[in-house]
Design a protein around this nucleic acid. Structure first.
Lengths: 146, 146
DNA sequence: TCTTGACCTCAAGTCGGCTTGAAGTAGGAC
DNA sequence: GTCCTACTTCAAGCCGACTTGAGGTCAAGA
């Protein structure tokens, strides 16, 4: 398969070209060369972008992901790191489950105000005590389908 | 219970005073008055902060949370919104579960390189197709214990 | 040959949720 | 009465992951 134009990569990976340029700047991907001004990429970049997307959705930062590629470009993913991330996701999943159940209860609860519902107050208590924490603070985050 | 000084609220809610000022600016909380320059808060603010923390961990933005308080200060949480958020969390949880299993497999997989593992490649394929998405993009996010 | 338009560079902007820093003030201990 | 210290205001900064805008270049089609 011949090299792909940046536009083609963008189309296939469903990623804007600006993002590809940004990733290149960060050292996550590299064009094989240029045709005129235009970047050309080895088709393998698609796999790499998939790897990046996977890492992102698992909660790794771009910098962390960059460190998972050896200088030769091949992934050198530390299995321990993966296992740790899986454990982290596991905790996150359990916490989200509790939260989901709480929300469902609050949604179904017949108390006139949520503040009058014992269950809701219990959840609040947990929130106060820090048993429930805020996403985006160096922890496992979820995924989405926009 | 008498009013609480901002420092006391910060201590009890485990939130920096700067955050309380920021929340006030956003209209999320309001002091009952001042003693000298210092803000004084009704103890009920603790419950309200708990509600805010809970909302944050469920993935609501501060603006969304602000809209959940009626002008009189009482929460007016739409049960449908809660149910929707619960459903969203449910989807997130399922996706994270798949991801966790995938990570565990990759961690345990004996293939010399992850790219040579069929399972890993299948996951990558899913990532490419968009079946796995990135957190932080208007979707349910997870929780954490920093 | 000329035009078109998709790419290029580089700097700056965006977004959410705060934090930080400089400069000011007042309550309470001495 | 004075001092300390914890508060105050306001503006600016930070983080990550990109996006946007202005001005420039060049391959390909008419």
């Amino acid at each position: 398969m011949p090299d792909l134009d940046i536009a083609e990569v963008a189309r296939r990976a469903k990623v804007p070209a600006s993002t590809l340029r940004f990733y290149e700047e960060k050292g996550l991907i590299a064009p094989t060369g240029r045709r005129g001004l235009r970047r050309q990429f080895d088709p393998g970049v698609l796999e790499r972008l998939a790897l990046i997307a996977l890492g992102r959705s698992a909660g790794f930062s771009l910098d962390e992901i960059a460190r998972m590629f050896a200088p030769d470009g091949r992934p050198r993913i530390d299995r321990q790191v993966l296992a740790d991330k899986a454990d982290e996701l596991d905790r996150t999943i359990r916490e989200l489950g509790v939260l989901r159940d709480s929300l469902r209860h609050a949604a179904a609860c017949p108390a006139p105000s949520h503040l009058e519902c014992p269950t809701f107050r219990r959840i609040l208590g947990a929130a106060v005590s820090g048993a429930v924490a805020v996403p985006g603070k160096r922890a496992g985050r979820g995924l989405s389908r926009p």
